[in-house]
Design a protein around this nucleic acid. Sequence first.
DNA 1: AGTGAAAATGAAAATCGTTTTCATTTAGAC
DNA 2: GTCTAAATGAAAACGATTTTCATTTTCACT
Lengths: 147, 147
Amino acid sequence: MKEFLRTKGFKMTPQRELIFRSFFEMEQHVSVDELYDKVRSIDRSIGYSTVWRNLKLICRVGLAQEVSMGDGITRYDRLTRVPHGHLFCLGCKKVIEFNADQIVGVLAQTAVENDFSNKGFKVEVQGFCAECRAKGAVDSFETESVS
Amino acid sequence: MKEFLRTKGFKMTPQRELIFRSFFEMEQHVSVDELYDKVRSIDRSIGYSTVWRNLKLICRVGLAQEVSMGDGITRYDRLTRVPHGHLFCLGCKKVIEFNADQIVGVLAQTAVENDFSNKGFKVEVQGFCAECRAKGAVDSFETESVS
DNA sequence: AGTGAAAATGAAAATCGTTTTCATTTAGAC
DNA sequence: GTCTAAATGAAAACGATTTTCATTTTCACT
C-alpha cells in the first residue's frame, strides 16, 4: 500500500496506515464518524480532519466511492470486491448488497451509446426489508406528515 | 392536484400551486435554489422554506425523489415519466437520462430475491461526456491533488 | 356565511455534516 | 543530514438543510 500510494505522489504515515487498515477491516459503508470512532479507539491523538482527508484519499485513488442513501450522511463504499448494488431499507437504514454483474453490462453499453466514459456507477433500490414490513414500518412511513 | 393532495391530508394554497406548477414546468433535476429563483421571479413574497417544504412534499406524495450526484446539492427528479437512470458528467456536472426499463426488471427481481419491497430506485453512471473528454477534463480531474 | 382546528407560510435562527485554514510536524527524495 | 512537499490536528468557517415561532390561511363542519 505504501508503494501504491507513493506511485501516486502520496506519503505514508502512521496515522494513514491505521486509518486505511481500519477502513478495510470494517464493515462496508462506514461514515466518517464511524471510522473516526474506530480509529480513535486505537489512537486517541488522531484528528477528525485527518480521518476525513484519508477517506477522501481512498476515494481519490479508486479504492472506494462516496455514497449517500438519503439520510444526510456520506458513506464510503469499498470498490475492492465484485461490482454490487445496494438495497437500502427506508425503515432501519440497513444496506444489503447484491451482485450487479448483469446491470454493469447494461450500463457499460449505455455509456457507449451516449459517448460517455464510464468511471463508476451506483445502483440503489429503496424499499423495506422483511423485518420492517413485519413491524409495520411501511405504514408509519407513508402516513408520516411533513414537518 | 388539489383533490390529489386533499386525499392525502394536505391543503392547497396559492404558494403551493405556484411551486408545484413551476416544478413540473422546469427542466429535470432542479435544486431548491433553482426552483426558489424561478418561483421568486413570479411571486417575490414566497419564502425559501416554503419552497423547500413543498419540494419535500412533492417527494412525500411520490411525484419526485431526491438525488445527489456528488456535488453537495440535492436535486429533485420527477418520477412522472418513464423509469430512467442518470449519466452524470464529473467534468461539467451535466446529467443525461437514459431509459432504464431493462434495469428495472433486474432490480425488481433482485428485490424479490432479497425479500425486499421495492419503493424506488436510483441508477447512476459517473464518467465524462464527449465534450469534457475533448477538453482534457479527465486528466485534470485524475491528477488533481487532495486538498 | 361563520367558526374552529389543523395546516401552511415567511423570516430568522439553529443545526450539523463537510471543508478549509494555519501553524507545526513528518516523510522521504536527494 | 537537508530540504521541500506533504500530512497532521485543532479550530474555525462554510453552507445546505431543517426547525422554530408568530401569524395567516385553508377547509371541514356547522
